[in-house]
Design a protein around this nucleic acid. Structure first.
Lengths: 217, 217, 217, 217
DNA sequence: TATGAATGAGACTTCATTCAT
DNA sequence: TATGAATGAAGTCTCATTCAT
């Protein structure tokens, strides 16, 4: 099985060296940024919601943009990080006994939980990434160094075992990722509406990817 | 075959009743909004790039937000509109002679061309839609009234003909759309890099969707 | 009897050498200035109401302030002017046969008609005079040169005839003017309300002034 | 005797909970508004005269119009308020021992002091009231609820005692108010000129009102 | 003569950031 | 450490006025 909820490790570590006020500011900022966007949110508003003085924000975060980065970066790391965790590595070693379907299921479950828990930050990231070159670089680096090598190994093993078609890894990855992101977004947007049966849609999505990629013999 | 490049009809109509300065302002605004985002762009900057006085912007667009809307709305309409064009309707009537693959190919080709031509506006839309309720409503309305009914008919016909699996139309649509969007984004981002062979990736994507949805006999 | 409606003489004279558009602009400006005030009225608004182009305003009136002056000045002149008209002079010569009451009645009737006819311009004048030094000078000059000497003569004659108390002319004038202005304002404000019986109030006001000024023997 | 200088009570209360900068801004605004009018005064100008940054104005007054209201409203209240003060009430109860002349004298003295002390604000009020509906309503309300009932009682008592003529109260009020206002304006305008002997003019005005209203038997 | 598009100065206002307390 | 009053740069927008047509 793939690791789940590893993300919290980071937080706890960090949280302990973080002041109570700092946390309250971050929480307030996340909430309002997600609701109104970075530029439409004033530091005054954040201060009020966090119950601190406006000046206090600048004790902990040099600038407003710094505050934004402090929100985005850990989430970015956590989005990518699971792929290099120990338990994931273990999963990799046990791969011979796992099917592609198990892999997909674990991946989807994990990312979906993550997306739901981090809905707000994800919304902030989507809005801001296109204009934050620094963050873009970070994202690329994380993807290239941390995520891609691991995932490539896993996918290659499924190709080797004949469970999926012989396609270039980047292509396989693109197809999986876009399908999964589509599912995750639908899930977050439609959550708690009568139109959405999550288990069913997850199952259908796994079927779709599997059928789409399996070596048709 | 599906209609291609119908979008331009709209522009030409509009362009003729539009003043030269108005066009220059729109062009400048699109370029800078896409580069730096709506809020990081000052009207002063737009005026300079458009070679007009700042006040002139407000002769044509009541407010800065109005300028944003004037950029987003036509593109939003054009994104959805093709689906209700005459030729599309004709295609629907000839469906007996078309395969699901033809349909996918036409859809992808059409949307890819559109995305490339409107790269910048699309970037602006993605950034702003989450915070512009008015635009969200417009988008929902267009989708529900204009696009969904037509597409649903086409997809249902493929299901009836046994070309694709018996799945709920919304599910089929979600899977196709997320896969196509993944392709389109990759195409726009990687265009002109050695990593990208568009025809090949298009073909692979079509194969993936087809295999993923076809009724396994 | 005092002269009534002499004011129109000026207009007719002027009106004939005035262009139709110029008149329409003046009319529009008077209406909007009175409603919203000089500064809250834009030339664009005036142009629209007058059915002319904005530029046309500046053909006839060098500046917006010039337009204001063109409205105020003739009314100012007309407010003062009657006192130096021929017929008034004649009235003066016939004074021996007139009572103070006749004089008051004529004065009040005349000024009341004038105020009602020029309600809007009077409102503009009241608002603007305190800040238009140039106009203040004009007003002072007119009062001092044109109005005061004539009125002083009349009042003196009533004093001489023992019809009113031996008070300094300026004091008498102040008392009469403030009482009459109070009547006129009430009349304009309350006109057409059930609270206002104009003839009765006029009569009472005349009684009040008469009693207040008459030499109590 | 009527209460005098009660107005200051209000100020002192307020002033203590008011910041030094806030007071400086108000003072500067009053001075410039009175001199040049509301619209001809820029916030930049006020800031300079008050020796604060332009932004500081908006910490204390949400908008420029808000600043105007903050100037006008207390004065409006103070103009009307004395009539409902305790000491005034006491005066009413002692009326049997007071003459109409005493009443007039107290009224005039009180209002004249007030006008002189608030010259500037009164000028601002006169200019702005015609265009500030909100203020008009406030003024009407204050007059109707606070001032009129008290004054009506007093005047009625003088009528009952036979000291003044049997006229409708509103008429009596109009005649007194317009005469007093005329005196007050003259006093403010001519103050410190050789043409003006205040005590004498006050005495004459009281005589005029008394004679004008007294039941002539 | 009349137009109205274009201008650009200047108005009001917001807000991230600083700093004395 | 925490505050929040004060700042002033920068932003959006208005509008009287000009001028080519």
């Amino acid at each position: 099985m793939l690791p789940i909820n590893l993300e919290e490790f980071f937080s706890e570590e960090k949280l302990q060296e973080m002041n109570e006020k700092e946390i309250k500011i971050l929480e307030a900022a996340i909430e309002i940024f997600a609701e109104k966007g970075f530029f439409s949110t004033s530091t005054n508003e954040i201060a009020k919601k966090a119950n601190v003085a406006e000046g206090t924000i600048f004790r902990y975060f040099k600038t407003k943009k710094d505050l934004l980065k402090s929100i985005i970066k850990p989430t970015l790391v956590k989005t990518i990080a699971p792929f290099e965790m120990d338990r994931f590595s273990k999963a990799v070693f046990h791969l011979e006994h796992e099917t592609f379907e198990d892999f997909l299921y674990a991946l989807i479950k994990n990312r979906m939980d993550f997306a739901k828990k981090n809905k707000e930050v994800v919304k902030i990231i989507i809005q801001e990434i296109p204009f934050q070159e620094e963050m873009q670089e970070e994202l690329k680096r994380l993807f290239k160094d941390k995520m891609y090598p691991k995932v490539a190994t896993v996918l290659q093993s499924f190709i080797d075992k004949g469970q999926i078609k012989e396609l270039p890894i980047p292509t396989v990855l693109r197809l999986i990722i876009s399908t999964v992101i589509g599912l995750v977004i639908s899930s977050v947007v439609l959550e708690n509406t009568p139109f959405w049966n999550e288990d069913q849609e997850t199952k259908r999505t796994i079927e779709y990817i599997k059928a789409g990629l399996e070596s048709g013999e």
